[in-house]
Design a protein around this nucleic acid. Structure first.
Lengths: 226, 226
DNA sequence: TTAAATTAATTCAATGATTAATTACATGCA
DNA sequence: TGCATGTAATTAATCATTGAATTAATTTAA
């Protein structure tokens, strides 16, 4: 055992002898590369080898910095997923009780998060939404604990005050809202492919979503209020 | 080479000596098991061994009936995915030009398909929507060739006639529609988990979606028309 | 010269793919 | 009717490859 073993915790310490002629912290780079690759291929289907290769290092580096794959994904969650999603909560808490404001806050918040972390939607869809996803439990217990319930609750209050379409179910509205925002983001490449080469304009999507939620599909009788 | 080799094509033929004390065609069963497992774990991350194990047979059976993994998934697409999705096209073609009717036809069609093939939404989300999905190209070229464009086109026509909210983009409306229908279906387990133990009622979801698309989130001024 | 950072090489299990042997039935033939 | 035989269906066993995890050796800078 002459090997240096950071085993449980990150080495971090700068200043030590590191031959890395590369850019910033390798540890960070590994997380970034992994986030992108996990989003592309899925966590289970992505080999540590592939990550290491894309990061131009040996697979052993992953073991050096993170231990095993489980702890690696754990680190990814702690240091990428959680910080990325955190702003959404604030967005929502700042929004008033008006359901339209809530909806807009949610859609705008998701939009910003996605803009900053393009890898997030595919990862979320794959690993949280789907049944066998690796991040299911974690997402619920740590990332957005009872955020869906909180949102539904506020919709329910708005509905009781007559501010929300009475035909809607507050909880299903949350589901719809997520579907309208995260789903298109996750599928951006596909829409591009389906509807010609144009990039999916996130601003346009946001406005469209709000317009849809404002009036529905029927021809609007009054002007919009955005 | 004393081995029987159906190599290129399905053996199919009944009447021959088959020790299988099991139920129907093993070939079919393998496809069903695989569909479920692929939906749960993802195609890449699912081993042939796992499929064989769950089907209570040897991995060699997969090779016997299908060849390699690529041809196996190909068969799954041809014999499960394509037939499953086919009805949607008819549904849409029968619907009139009224956007509400179109929307309802789509939502109802998706609902029926999902009810019949619970494995479809997760598989679709994973393998078609996401970038690294294995079925991307195939889906577009074979399963629903230019169906999105067709839908968008009809929305555009309706819009030109003043039947559709002018603030909407026909193509983005298609995106929203898919998000509102497929996404909740794919995430059914999660909503169950998020909002207590109740099953996600697909009928309720359908009605909710239609209500949302009819009037938006604002308090409705007129009675519903369902 | 010391310790962090990194590479190279190794081990072990799992996977995809394949082959050879085995089973069970159906049919032809006596 | 009963037996031999061919063939589809299936299992057991094998092989090469890949992946995760580990260890030892090497580089680099403080």
């Amino acid at each position: 055992m002459t090997t240096a073993k950071p085993s449980s915790r990150h080495p971090r310490s700068r200043g030590a002898g590191r031959p890395s002629g590369d850019d910033g912290d390798l540890r960070e780079r590994l997380l970034d590369v992994a986030a992108a690759q996990f989003a592309r291929t899925g966590i289970e289907a992505t080999s540590l080898r592939a990550i290491a290769t894309e990061a131009r290092v040996t697979p052993a580096m992953l073991h050096y910095y993170f231990g095993d794959k489980a702890r690696f994904t754990q680190a990814l969650i702690e240091e990428r997923l959680l910080p990325a999603v955190a702003p959404l909560r604030e967005h929502l808490e700042q929004a008033g009780d008006d359901p339209r404001a809530l909806v807009e806050a949610f859609a705008r918040g998701v939009g910003e998060i996605v803009a900053r972390n393009p890898w997030l939607p595919p990862l979320w869809v794959r690993e949280v939404l789907c049944e066998g996803g690796s991040l299911r439990e974690l997402m619920f217990s740590r990332v957005v604990p009872n955020l869906p319930q909180m949102l539904a609750q506020r919709f329910a209050v708005a509905q009781a005050r007559g501010l929300l379409n009475a035909a809607l179910d507050p909880r299903l509205l949350v589901v719809s809202l997520v579907g309208l925002t995260l789903f298109p983001a996750a599928g951006a490449p596909i829409w591009r492919r389906a509807f010609g080469a144009e990039e999916l304009d996130t601003d346009a999507l946001l406005n469209h979503t709000l317009a849809l939620l404002d009036h529905g599909v029927g021809a609007a009788e009054s002007g919009d209020s955005s």
